[in-house]
Simulated assay, not measured.
Amino acid sequence: MLHMKIMQWMDSVLAKGEAMDFFHDEFRCPVYVKDLVTIVWTLTSRLISEESMQLLLNVGGPDRVSRVQMAEVVAHIRGYNLSLIKSVSSSTVNRGVKSPADISMDITRLIQTLNMSPTSFRDGVKLTLEAEFASAS
């Protein structure tokens, strides 16, 4: 639910006990999908009830995390060996396209405008992995 594909991938790699390189110098603010649904629902409801509305809001999660930090959270939640996570610079890998190093964002206005408390990255990963496990059972 929270960047499900990347969480599934990290989980599957670490579950195999394989060491893997993760970037320490690319930062993101992953948003939990249920928070995104709440945001869209709230804004849609306001748009329907108001004559006009113009807002510019950053939508992301409350935590700025690197790929290494993402993998560490998955490892902590699942009980995997942290030594499998190898911290590398994104410049060591040619992905064919240049990816921005930092696309984190300030979501203060979003939180204030919608009076919401977004789900932390750690809690979002835990809920996502639990949901995946429950649907696989």
Rank of each mutant, 00 (worst) to 15 (best):
M70Q: 14
M70I: 07
M70R: 13
M70V: 04
A71H: 14
E72F: 02
E72N: 02
V73P: 13
V73T: 15
V73W: 09
V74I: 06
V74D: 10
V74A: 04
A75H: 08
A75C: 10
A75K: 06
A75M: 04
A75L: 06
H76N: 15
H76C: 14
H76M: 15
R78I: 05
R78E: 14
R78F: 09
G79K: 10
G79M: 10
G79S: 14
G79E: 14
Y80A: 00
Y80M: 02
Y80I: 02
N81D: 15
N81Q: 15
N81K: 14
N81T: 13
N81I: 03
L82Q: 07
L82H: 12
S83P: 05
S83N: 15
S83F: 11
S83Q: 13
L84A: 07
I85S: 01
I85K: 03
I85N: 07
I85H: 07
K86A: 02
K86V: 13
K86L: 11
S87R: 02
S87H: 06
S87T: 01
V88S: 05
V88C: 10
S89V: 04
S89A: 11
S89I: 05
S89C: 07
S89F: 00
S90A: 10
S90D: 02
S90M: 11
S90K: 10
S90I: 02
S90C: 08
S90Q: 09
S91R: 13
S91M: 08
S91F: 12
S91P: 02
S91V: 10
T92V: 09
T92E: 15
V93G: 00
V93I: 09
V93D: 04
V93C: 01
N94P: 11
N94C: 06
R95F: 12
G96T: 08
G96Y: 00
G96N: 03
G96C: 03
V97Y: 09
V97L: 05
V97W: 03
V97G: 05
V97S: 07
V97A: 06
V97K: 11
K98M: 08
K98L: 10
S99A: 12
P100N: 05
P100H: 02
P100A: 06
A101M: 13
A101H: 15
D102V: 00
D102E: 00
D102F: 01
D102I: 00
D102G: 00
I103Q: 12
I103H: 08
I103M: 12
S104K: 03
S104A: 06
S104G: 10
S104P: 00
M105N: 11
M105E: 14
D106S: 00
I107W: 06
I107K: 05
I107E: 05
T108H: 14
T108K: 13
R109S: 14
R109W: 08
L110V: 05
L110K: 07
L110M: 06
L110T: 08
L110D: 09
L110H: 03
I111A: 03
I111M: 08
I111C: 09
I111F: 04
I111Q: 11
Q112R: 09
Q112F: 03
Q112T: 09
T113P: 02
L114P: 01
L114T: 00
L114W: 01
L114N: 02
N115C: 03
N115T: 05
N115M: 03
M116T: 12
M116I: 15
M116H: 09
S117T: 14
S117W: 08
S117Q: 15
S117D: 12
S117H: 14
P118I: 01
P118N: 06
